[in-house]
Design a protein around this nucleic acid. Structure first.
Length: 666
RNA sequence: GCCGACUUGGCGCAAUUGGUAGCGCACCGCUCUUGUAAAGCGGGGGUUGUGGGUUCGAGUCCCAUAGUCGGCUCCA
């Protein structure tokens, strides 16, 4: 036997010729190897001079391999139970995997249970995943009964593969056989570029099927819907359990659930899908958010404007919205048409639309008089309520509604001022988001997609606008992620993405440059040299929509709002009725200073009162009995159950006022 | 919009194969109430989302419709 020299995890090693990953890695937690930078099965034979690195099951690559292998096992289980099922694709995704099937009947929850059992059987059998190189012709014969796989073979090597990349890649066309370890027989196969776990046993018991849903083949609405089964898979049962607990935790802070529990808002069926009403407690939070936003805008040179909710159609014809986005608008109200007895139109009617955007109104305000360079930058701000006809399947609590209020501003600036104005706006946006308690950001630069007719306007203008945005974004020091094709139809944008308390990211603020609408509306100002020039518009919203931001904050805080936002900031809880008067005076004093404080004089007993207000997530509970009254003190209790006794009243009041004033969390 | 599931007092849930709609919390009343996450007793409240149908009989089966949920597509 000859000997070859290879690099194993950076160290030189001599091994027998023909050795593979199994010969090099003995650890059971190594599931694959990276050979000369490419992910390979452990069974991949190593050549002289190769460099190989171990892929641990718990590494990002390892988890993907585990999950992709679990997807194969799922597909095998489906075809074992229903041989007529046609295979779509089955890639790993964040925290799990899915596989798409063309089946006559959609999967039921009972089906999923049965599939899990069958998967367990396959996993216990310890089937080997074996890679086999094939070619177009052979693969087509072998997979003749799999129409979707045949389509993928035809797409091999093209960009159109998209999600199918797990099946066919740039290299050889490969099929993975699942071989029974006893008989050596191939029991199942799938077109796949791999790599895979050495055998199914390594999937262990850390997997679970989560749900089924329909999904369009290759993500295209015009294609047939396949039935998708989602699963999750982890190296160990404990990690699976921890994952399910994380989901449970996220469900607990779902703003739709907290909205009902804390009596913040609701979506009455009588009003319509996606249309919220805010209850008094939610109303206080919302008003506080709005008041603070107004105050900051005022301090930063914005002027406040107002515009109506409906307008004649010509406004949105000029803006271009009716051309491109009429599907997203509520249908028109047809007014003023008069028809005579013969059915002939005597007076032509007029279409009115609910506004899906505020910008055209602000533009009209700009146009209401001749503008000079001295007026610029002109910053118009409005809490503008807009209505968008979201498709019925996409409405989602406050985060995707059909009626919502944008904290919308439009800045009219000279070409020369764009950069400095953008910088100021970005700083303003980030500062304000921080005040509301979000602090972990990155930026996304949404640009135009070449060749897509959705994007209007001159290429050169797009390029310079994009370059300016990129420059400002980069200078902010935050991470900048490209988002090709994500721009608005009228211009590129920066969006601020914020991570919440449990690490989820939300798109918050957007700052969009617009060279298009000023053109369409023929906006002009007189420059210092007397010439007429066209201003540039910057669209920006911080919250995006107040409702959505409200929902995000609710989830970020899990309903435990910081005192300045909490609907009830202080509750006085007397140990017994006798102390109502003593505590009542303290509460009255707080109220006089603008604190949202109340005294619990209900018939409930003392412990019940503590329970009630803790559940309501009131930040400060002031408790008083005989000891406290004698010392002119209170017992200061917090919603996490901690308490400080014998706090002098003046100290307690000062701490409450400070927390509210400084917007700190307690 | 597409696929699937779901909808029972304010909220969370029950109701064997179709056979008298129940429970907890909340609410109302009374009694009690000085120390840290649920006092006791009593009471009211639902034509089971809505509209049709099948049946001697429908919360339960069928159709339609509204809404919700999970995905897909979409998100100016």
């Amino acid at each position: 036997m000859s000997v070859i020299t290879i690099q194993v995890d950076g160290a030189k090693q001599e091994v027998e010729s023909g050795a593979d990953g199994f010969a090099v890695y003995k650890s059971k937690t190594v599931v694959a190897q990276r050979v000369n930078g490419a992910l390979r099965d452990l069974a991949w034979p190593l050549q002289d001079g190769d460099s190989t690195e171990a892929v641990e099951i718990s590494s990002p690559d390892g988890l993907n391999i585990l999950r992709h292998s679990a997807a194969h096992v799922l597909a095998q289980a489906v075809q074992n139970i229903n041989p007529e099922a046609k295979l779509g694709i089955g890639p790993p995704i964040t925290d799990g995997f899915y596989y798409d099937f063309d089946v006559v009947d959609p999967f039921t929850p009972e089906d999923l249970k049965r599939l899990e059992k069958e998967m367990e059987r396959i996993i216990r059998a310890g089937q080997r995943f074996v890679r086999r190189v094939t070619n177009d012709g052979d693969a087509r014969t072998e997979l003749a009964k799999e129409p979707y796989k045949l389509e993928l073979i035809g797409l091999k090597g093209t960009d159109a593969v998209g999600d199918g990349a797990a099946e066919v890649g740039a290299g050889d066309l490969t099929i993975y056989d699942n071989n029974d370890p006893q008989s050596g027989e191939t029991v199942w196969r799938d077109l796949c570029r791999g790599p895979h776990l050495p055998n199914t046993r390594m999937i262990g018991n850390g997997f679970s099927l989560m749900r089924s849903a329909a999904a369009y083949w290759r993500g295209n609405e015009k294609n047939k819907q396949l039935q998708r089964v989602y699963g999750t898979a982890w190296p160990t049962k404990d990690e699976l359990r921890a994952y399910l607990e994380r989901l449970e935790e996220a469900a607990k802070r779902d703003h739709r659930r907290l909205g009902a529990e804390l009596d913040l808002f609701s979506f009455p069926e009588e009003v319509g899908s996606g249309l919220a009403v805010f209850h008094p407690k939610g109303g206080i939070i919302r008003k506080t958010m709005e008041d603070y936003s107004r105050q900051r805008h005022e301090e930063s040179g914005y002027e406040f404007v107002y515009s109506p909710h409906v307008t004649k159609s010509n406004l949105f014809e000029t803006s271009g919205h009716l051309d491109w986005y009429s599907e997203g608008m509520f249908p028109p109200l047809q007014l003023d048409e008069e028809v005579d007895e013969n059915g002939h139109v005597r007076k032509k009617g007029q279409d009115y639309y609910l506004k899906p955007m505020n910008c055209p109104f602000h533009i009209l305000i700009f146009k209401s008089q001749g503008r000079s360079y001295r007026d610029l930058p002109l910053r118009m701000f409005e809490f503008g309520t807009v209505y968008r006809y979201e498709k019925s399947g996409v409405v989602h609590g406050l985060t995707r509604a059909r009626g919502f209020t944008q904290d919308d501003a439009h800045l009219f600036v000279t070409q020369e001022d764009i950069e400095v104005e953008l910088r100021v706006v970005l700083e303003f946006v980030l500062g304000l988001l921080r005040d509301y308690g979000l602090s972990d950001f990155y930026l996304e630069l949404s640009t135009k997609e070449e060749g897509n007719p959705k994007f209007v306007g001159d290429d050169a203008i797009w390029q310079s606008a994009t370059a300016t945005l990129e420059k400002v974004a980069t200078e902010s020091g935050l991470t900048l992620v490209p988002d090709p094709g994500g721009a608005a139809f009228y211009g590129p944008k920066i969006s601020v993405q914020a991570r919440d308390a449990i690490g989820r990211t939300w798109q918050m603020s957007t700052i969009q440059l617009d060279f298009n609408l000023p053109e369409r509306f023929d906006l002009e100002y007189t420059a210092s040299d007397g010439t007429r020039k066209r201003p540039v518009m910057i669209h920006r919203a911080l919250f995006g929509s107040i409702e959505r931001f409200f929902g995000v904050l609710t989830e970020h805080y899990a309903g435990i709002f910081p005192p300045w936002l909490a609907p009830v900031q202080v509750v006085g809880i007397p140990v017994a009725e006798e102390f109502n008067e003593y505590l009542g005076e303290i509460v009255a004093g707080l109220k006089k200073q603008g604190v949202r404080a109340s005294l619990d004089v209900s018939d409930d007993r003392f412990p019940k009162k503590i329970r009630n207000h803790t559940k309501d997530k009131v930040p400060f509970m002031l408790i008083a009995g005989g000891e406290d009254r004698d010392a002119i003190a209170v017992s200061f209790r917090f919603r996490d159950g901690t308490q400080e006794n014998a706090v002098p009243v003046a100290d307690a009041v000062e701490r409450i006022l400070a927390a509210i004033r400084d917007k700190t969390q307690v």
